[in-house]
Nucleic acid binder design. Structure first.
Length: 267
DNA sequence: AGTATAACCTGTCTGC
DNA sequence: TGCAGACAGGTTATAC
């Protein structure tokens, strides 16, 4: 579920609330999420150490303790909460407060790495450019577009750009006036520029509005829904009117996933 | 290198 | 009311 803006929202809340505090205890309620470690590995190295920072890389959250990093991917239905729920899979107990990893579909993942292993670890090793960083220039996007793949498929490829998912790739393509099925290599320099600025504007606005909530699956850490669903132009709006013209928003299938677009506005 | 498919898991919604 | 099927913010293994 969560894409970059939602993950960034969790990151900020958790970092502000917890950084600098020692972890008192860690409770694994569902070891299904543990991918390269077991409960005892976590118990052995994390309790008693200080959480220095909560960082983000693409859609991953990095809980940076003194020597070890806990890497969390929320996949489709994960979220962090300040209160325990009936889908709690992990509890991190700090002095006087705890945070809870909820995950209805149990697709989320947890990895444990020593800080020295982090740069070469499997989940992060091939990750693409951070779209909100200075590295994401027109030139960089131009180089990523040297392929005949369809634009939408390229945008959600985490090895190219880290953090875009189904919602924000559709929204960015709409803003740029580009059809999701366009071949990436067909873009002009001007279109590449439009696409880059559209991606960044979309993500920045979504971060500012605390992400997109369609249902109770995504809520911010404090339990409130995000607000960006009110600003969507095409995503999840099949059959409704385009916000820019009188055409109906269409839904198509690309790689088993839905893409939404306005055929009149996007070429 | 690319794509297509199924798989992972659990729930909701739709149509018959 | 029941049941089957499609679908969901994501990624990965496998086969071509």
């Amino acid at each position: 579920m969560p894409e970059l803006p939602e993950v960034e929202n969790f990151r900020g809340r958790l970092h502000d609330r917890l950084s600098g505090k020692p972890l008192e205890n860690l409770i694994v309620h569902d070891s299904f999420l543990l991918k390269n470690c077991d409960k005892s590995d976590l118990q052995d190295v994390l309790p008693g150490t200080t959480l220095n920072a909560v960082k983000r890389r693409g859609k991953y959250l990095l809980f940076s303790f003194q020597e070890y990093i806990l890497l969390n991917h929320l996949r489709m239905s994960g979220r962090w909460a300040l209160e325990k729920g009936d889908r709690t899979r992990l509890t991190l107990q700090f002095c006087k407060e705890s945070v809870f990893l909820e995950d209805l579909r149990r697709l989320g993942t947890l990895h444990l790495y020593h800080e020295s292993e982090l740069n070469n670890c499997d989940p992060l090793a091939d990750m693409g450019v951070e779209p909100l960083s200075d590295q994401f220039t027109d030139h960089k996007l131009q180089s990523l577009c040297c392929t005949n793949r369809e634009l939408k498929r390229l945008l959600v490829d985490q090895k190219r750009i880290a953090g875009l998912g189904n919602i924000y790739s559709c929204e960015a393509l709409f803003r740029a006036g580009l059809h999701p099925c366009r071949s990436a290599s067909s873009l002009t320099d001007q279109e590449v520029h439009e696409l880059r600025t559209s991606i960044q504007q979309t993500l920045r606005e979504a971060v500012k509005h605390e992400g997109t909530s369609f249902d109770q699956l995504y809520k911010t850490a404090s339990g409130k829904p995000g607000q960006f669903q009110h600003l969507l132009n095409v995503y999840d709006r099949e059959g409704e009117l385009c916000t820019e013209c009188d055409s109906q928003v269409k839904r198509i299938k690309q790689g088993q996933r839905s893409s939404y677009l306005c055929e009149n506005c996007q070429e």
